[in-house]
C-alpha cells in the first residue's frame, strides 16, 4: 500500500508522535523523579523544587538505611514465601479444577461450572469471610490465612479451562488408546501443550500475591509474618515513628531527621519496585497474551 504523504498527513504524524511522547514522559517521569531523588543528598532532596533530571547532590544514605532495615529483609523473605508457596498451591488447585471443568465426559461439568461461576457475582463479603477464616478455621495471624482463603481465582480457572478445551481431541485419543487415565492424560498431554497459558496464569498469581497487602492487614498481627507491602505501607503511608527513633541516634539536628526520612521513603520506593520492573520486560509478552485470553469468549 502506497502511503500518500501530503502536508496534512505529515503534520498529523508530527503532532501524534509528539503527543505520544508526552504520554510516555508522563508515565515515566514520576518514577524517574523518585529514582533521582533517592540518590540525592537528604537536604538537597527536601529543598529541591520542580522537575528533577539528576540527583541533587549525591548520597546513598537512604539506601543504607533501607537496606539495613531488618523489616525490609524480613518482609522480602515473607513475600517470597507467600509468592512461591501460594503460587504453587494455587496452580495445582486451578489446574485440577480447570481439568474437571474441561471434560465433556464429566457428568457434573455443568453443575460444577454454575457452582463456581456464581461466586464471581455474589459472595459473603468481607466480614463473613473474615469470620469464617478466623472463627471457623482459626487461621487468624497464621501464614495459612494469606494463602488458603484465596486458593483459586475463578477467573484464572475459567481461562485455563478454555485453554484445556482447545487441546485437539486427536492428541487425547491416542493417549486414551494407550490406556492412559485422566491423571496421566493431564500431565503427559494437556499440560505440555498449554504451557503458554499456564505461564500467564502463574505470572498473574505471582504478581497478585506480590502486590497484595489488604489480606495481610486483615489477617496478620505478628510483624514477623508481615509481607513486604505492609512494611512499605508503614514507611510510605502511615509514617511509623519507629523509623525516626532509629535515625535520631545518628543525627544531631532534629530537622535532619525530616530530611533523611523523605530520602528513606524515596529509596524504599525504588527498592520495592526495581525487582518487578526488572522482570517486567521479559514477562510483558505473557501479560499481554493474558489480557487477550481474558477477553476471548468460548
Amino acid at each position: 500500500m502506497v502511503e500518500n504523504k501530503s502536508f496534512g498527513s505529515r503534520l498529523f504524524d508530527i503532532i501524534n508522535y509528539a503527543l505520544l511522547g508526552v504520554v510516555a514522559l508522563l508515565c515515566l517521569y514520576p518514577l524517574w523523579h523518585v529514582l533521582m531523588g533517592s540518590f540525592s543528598d537528604p537536604k538537597g532532596l527536601t529543598l529541591h523544587t520542580g522537575i528533577m533530571l539528576w540527583p541533587e547532590g549525591f548520597s546513598l544514605a537512604g539506601y543504607q538505611i533501607v537496606l539495613s532495615n531488618p523489616n525490609i529483609l524480613s518482609g522480602y523473605l515473607n513475600t517470597l514465601f507467600y509468592v512461591v508457596v501460594g503460587t504453587c498451591a494455587r496452580m495445582v488447585m486451578t489446574i485440577l479444577g480447570a481439568y474437571a471443568l474441561s471434560r465433556s465426559n464429566f457428568l457434573l461439568k455443568r453443575a460444577m461450572s454454575v457452582f463456581v461461576v456464581v461466586t464471581m457475582y455474589f459472595g459473603g463479603g468481607l466480614i463473613a469471610s473474615f469470620l469464617v477464616v478466623t472463627k471457623v478455621f482459626n487461621m487468624y495471624d497464621s501464614r495459612a490465612a494469606i494463602i488458603v482463603p484465596s486458593l483459586v481465582s475463578t477467573w484464572n480457572m475459567i481461562i485455563l479451562k478454555t485453554a484445556f478445551q482447545r487441546v485437539p481431541a486427536s492428541l487425547e485419543e491416542s493417549a486414551r488408546l494407550d490406556g492412559a487415565n485422566d491423571l496421566v492424560l493431564l500431565i503427559r498431554i494437556i499440560l505440555p501443550v498449554t504451557m503458554a497459558t499456564l505461564a500467564v496464569i502463574t505470572l498473574y498469581y505471582a504478581v497478585a500475591e506480590w502486590n497484595s497487602w489488604f489480606t495481610a492487614v486483615v489477617y496478620l498481627r505478628s510483624r514477623e509474618k508481615f509481607p513486604l507491602q505492609l512494611f512499605l505501607r508503614e514507611t510510605l503511608i502511615s509514617y511509623s515513628t519507629s523509623m525516626s527513633d532509629e535515625v535520631t541516634g545518628s543525627m544531631d539536628a532534629p530537622d535532619m531527621v525530616l530530611f533523611i526520612e523523605e530520602l528513606v521513603r524515596y529509596a524504599t520506593i525504588i527498592v520495592a519496585t526495581v525487582p518487578i520492573l526488572c522482570i517486567y520486560p521479559f514477562a510483558q509478552r505473557y501479560f499481554i497474551t493474558g489480557v487477550m485470553m481474558g477477553s476471548l469468549k468460548e
Binding site: L96, A100, R103, F115, G123, G124, A128, V132, N181, D182
Partner: peptide, 26 residues
Amino acid sequence: NPYIYWMALPVVLYYLLFHYLPMFGI
C-alpha cells in the same frame, strides 16, 4: 472416570468452605 471426581473434589471443597460458607454467614 474416577480420577476426574477426585480432581474436582478439593476444588469443590475449597469453594464450599471459603465461598459458600461465608454466604451462609450473611
